[in-house]
Simulated scan of single mutants.
Amino acid sequence: MTAQKPGLHPRNRHRSRYDMNALCQSCPQLQEFIVQTPAGEPSVNFADPLAVKALNKALLAHFYGVAHWDIPEGFLCPPVPGRADYIHHLADLLAESNGGEIPKQATVLDIGTGANLIYPLIGAHEYGWRFTGSETGPEAFASAQAIINGNEGLTRVIRLRRQKDASLIFNGIIHKNENYDATMCNPPFHDSAATARAGSERKRRNLGQAEDGALNFGGQQHELWCEGGEVAFIEKMIAESQQFGRQVKWFTTLVSRGDNLPPLYRALTNVGAVKVVKKEMAQGQKQSRFIAWSFMNDAKRRRPF
């Protein structure tokens, strides 16, 4: 099973096809969801949310040493390979301002870390970085904290902060005299509950599900949509970032559609960002990207932990 998945970062552990036998050894629960493809190879039914969740558990256990991982029903179950790509491209960005070397002690703020805690889990394992994860929802916060508490060593490298005011992003999370090498974010990209539902139904049709079935990757309201959609959310992030420009080396965020870039570039010009970078990513046919901006000309950072 050595076929390569096109487009993934060279350091991404998921470039080869899944070895289902090895994954089942790491997470025996996955075995009950194994099905045969028409070609006779083991796989899972990606239209089954329980199968996708079991696959995620197996991937996190096998590749990232995460012994305990679970999320409440109905919460976003992230596709691990694409999430890992963001981490690896972020590592390249940090290396560019660190003499070509990926920093071994980077500190990263994950905005809206979610019930799944996916970015801190991957980043801490792959690079030994320290993470602060922010979250607004009490159930998601409790889930993420349970993952940290359930895995040996994570309390030393991942901490959570509750964002008490859902209208704020960095305010209330970045404390005075704290510094971060980077922030990252997977923002809600729909602009209403209706468009989020339509997107979910489109995915279900593509997976051959009935329209009233549960979407395989799930998602709560605040994970999927916000007033004004992705552009409004990132514009707010950009506006707030100016206040913390001396405390954060790189602010970054995923941008789901290339069409959304022009207004974001204008917003970055308006706040006086010194450097703006776009990193293109791909997973098979799916194109994605993140943008990064900085208010600093130097690369040296103090550590917040």
Rank of each mutant, 00 (worst) to 15 (best):
C77Y: 00
Q36L: 09
N98D: 07
I238P: 01
N206S: 15
E41Y: 06
L8R: 03
Y265F: 06
A282W: 02
G82D: 02
K5I: 15
S167I: 12
M281Q: 12
S26A: 14
T37A: 07
R161A: 11
T155L: 10
R204K: 12
D181H: 04
L121M: 09
D259F: 01
L8Q: 07
G65I: 08
G65T: 08
V277R: 09
R83H: 05
K236I: 10
N177S: 14
V255S: 01
P6R: 06
Q31H: 15
N149T: 12
D92C: 01
H175G: 15
L93Y: 01
L224M: 10
Q36M: 13
R204D: 06
A67T: 08
C24H: 11
A47M: 10
F305G: 11
M184D: 03
N186H: 06
T269S: 14
L268A: 06
L261H: 00
M237T: 04
P42K: 01
T155C: 13
A239I: 02
N177T: 11
G172F: 15
A106Q: 03
P10A: 07
D298K: 07
Q4Y: 13
A193H: 01
A51C: 09
R202T: 15
L93K: 08
S143L: 02
T253R: 00
S241D: 00
H190D: 11
A210W: 02
F233I: 14
L121S: 03
A273T: 01
A299L: 03
Q145A: 14
E211F: 11
G272H: 04
S143N: 06
G245F: 00
D181N: 06
I173L: 07
V274C: 05
L215N: 13
P38Y: 01
W225S: 05
S294F: 01
T107C: 14
V274S: 05
R156A: 14
K164Y: 15
Q285R: 12
F131M: 02
F244N: 10
G133N: 07
D70K: 05
A91N: 06
N171H: 10
N171Y: 14
Q287I: 05
S256C: 09
K275L: 07
P138D: 13
R246C: 05
